[in-house]
Simulated assay, not measured.
Amino acid sequence: MSRIPITRGGYEKLKAELDKLRNVDRNEVILAIQEARGHGDLSENAEYDAAKERQGMIEARINELEYKMSLFEIIDISQMSGDKVAFGATVTIENIDTEERKTYTIVGSDEADIFNGKISIMSPLARAMMGKKESDDFTVQAPKGETEYEIIKIEFIEG
């Protein structure tokens, strides 16, 4: 199985989620199941059913995170530099038609958050930028059609 790239910050965030699931959420749901059992007949106990369902979701997420964490390759962005777009780069682009500028950091799929300017390395936008330099133009196929951008700035900033 191939390695999955992730930034140090993304890894730490998922590790914290895994720790919370194991040490807090799992214990809370066990207590909720025990309490619901005390209410009597389990066949018609909505609290018990809900707690068991939540337990299943918690265990599934724990398993998913444990598996993924075994495949992660932490990329130290603070050690990166260069003049080409690569994983971990923070890239400012400009829409050639509208002159609107946006800044995105290229991260792993598990840490992508478009609302905070983090896009997955697997996204069409990130893939179109890879290997480009400042002042290079590139085109992205979007649902509305093709959009052309220019790379304004490339930085490697941890965080």
Rank of each mutant, 00 (worst) to 15 (best):
residue 8 R to E: 05
residue 10 G to A: 09
residue 11 Y to F: 15
residue 11 Y to Q: 03
residue 14 L to M: 07
residue 17 E to G: 01
residue 18 L to C: 01
residue 21 L to T: 10
residue 22 R to H: 06
residue 23 N to R: 06
residue 25 D to Y: 10
residue 27 N to C: 11
residue 32 A to Y: 03
residue 37 R to I: 14
residue 38 G to H: 03
residue 41 D to Y: 04
residue 42 L to W: 10
residue 46 A to Q: 12
residue 47 E to N: 08
residue 48 Y to E: 00
residue 49 D to V: 13
residue 49 D to A: 08
residue 55 Q to D: 09
residue 68 K to L: 15
residue 71 L to C: 10
residue 71 L to F: 04
residue 72 F to V: 06
residue 76 D to P: 01
residue 82 G to A: 06
residue 85 V to L: 02
residue 85 V to I: 06
residue 86 A to K: 15
residue 87 F to G: 08
residue 89 A to S: 12
residue 92 T to L: 12
residue 93 I to W: 01
residue 95 N to H: 07
residue 99 E to V: 08
residue 99 E to C: 06
residue 102 K to M: 11
residue 102 K to L: 14
residue 103 T to G: 06
residue 103 T to S: 08
residue 105 T to M: 07
residue 113 D to F: 05
residue 114 I to G: 10
residue 115 F to Y: 12
residue 119 I to N: 01
residue 121 I to W: 07
residue 121 I to D: 12
residue 122 M to V: 15
residue 126 A to P: 05
residue 127 R to H: 06
residue 129 M to D: 03
residue 129 M to P: 02
residue 129 M to Q: 02
residue 134 E to T: 15
residue 136 D to F: 08
residue 138 F to Y: 04
residue 140 V to G: 08
residue 141 Q to C: 13
residue 143 P to N: 11
residue 144 K to F: 15
residue 146 E to G: 11
residue 148 E to V: 13
residue 159 G to R: 04
residue 159 G to P: 00
